[in-house]
């Protein structure tokens, strides 16, 4: 079954076509990566998929449903979660508060005003359990987010998306900027994603892509250049030329 698909997805900015007729199909449980040099249209593609931007032409389908006209939050409610290339966290919240907020939203409870958050004990407990599974120490769970090391913040970025229990997860350069010493935890979290979750990875880091992805789409100048399994993509001369800049070793 198709989890996420686009048909002829395009977006113009003025006269510039940032994304030009992209067709993508992700089967349920797919591990799919989108790579491409700077300016290839990756960020615009993410924004079109999540609903932050409306396409000039084309469609986005989520689990068979046409979601092209739906807002970001409506797509999230239908099972599409994302992480951000640059952390979008709540600096003053503790990780427990932030994940609790995400869980309350998943359960559709954030319009409730007549009971304190602490009365939703099961939700708070689930937040702790989720952070625990990502190996957050108890003290880290209770610290203000802004005081955490960058690698932990990156992990919290993923935790917020996981809390939504998505069917499709969009990871926008999850390991970007994480110092080598802390990147292991982030990569482990990505590798440990449940198998039924469909994952679309937007990435710069080739190691991560080739380790994780079962299928790769290479973008160049807003269009799909090549799509296929990693080995095939790595051998493709056009990819080497456009993406790697020069003929490289396999």
């Amino acid at each position: 079954m198709t989890a996420l698909a686009t048909e002829g997805l395009s977006r113009d900015f003025g006269g510039f076509r940032a994304v030009a007729g992209i067709d993508l199909v992700l089967a349920q449980g797919a591990r799919h990566a989108v790579i491409g040099p700077n300016g290839a249209g990756k960020t615009t593609l993410v924004n079109l998929l999540t609903g932050a931007l409306r396409p000039t032409a084309g469609r986005v389908r989520l689990g068979g449903e046409d979601v092209t006209a739906l807002s970001q939050h409506a797509r999230v409610k239908r099972g599409l979660a994302r992480t951000f290339q640059i952390n979008q966290l709540f600096p003053e919240f503790t990780p427990v508060q932030a994940v609790t907020l995400a869980l309350l939203e998943r359960e559709g409870l954030t319009a409730r005003w007549w009971r304190p958050v602490s009365a939703h004990g099961a939700v708070v407990a689930e937040a702790r359990a989720l952070l625990d599974s990502l190996r957050f120490a108890p003290a880290e769970m209770r610290a203000a987010t802004r005081s955490l090391p960058y690698g932990r913040q990156r992990l919290l970025e993923i935790a917020l998306a996981l809390a939504l229990r998505p069917r499709v997860l969009l990871l926008d350069e999850p390991a970007a900027g994480v110092p080598p010493g802390e990147s292991r935890a982030v990569l482990d979290a990505v590798a440990a994603l449940p198998r039924d979750v469909t994952v679309l990875l937007i990435e710069h880091d080739m190691d991560l892509v080739f380790r994780f992805a079962e299928r790769i789409t290479v973008l160049a100048q807003g269009a799909v250049l090549v799509e296929g399994p990693p080995a095939e993509v790595a051998r493709d001369p056009r990819v080497r030329e456009v993406y790697l800049g020069e003929p490289a070793h396999g």
Partner: peptide
């Protein structure tokens, strides 16, 4: 006091803390 301690109140503080993240959590900001 009740309202600000509620899930609704937490969502409001979330919007103030990061209005870009909230739609990505599914909140109709």
């Amino acid at each position: 006091r009740l309202i600000t301690a509620s899930p609704f109140g937490l969502a409001l503080r979330g919007i103030r803390g990061n209005a870009r993240r909230m739609p990505a959590l599914g909140t109709p900001v």
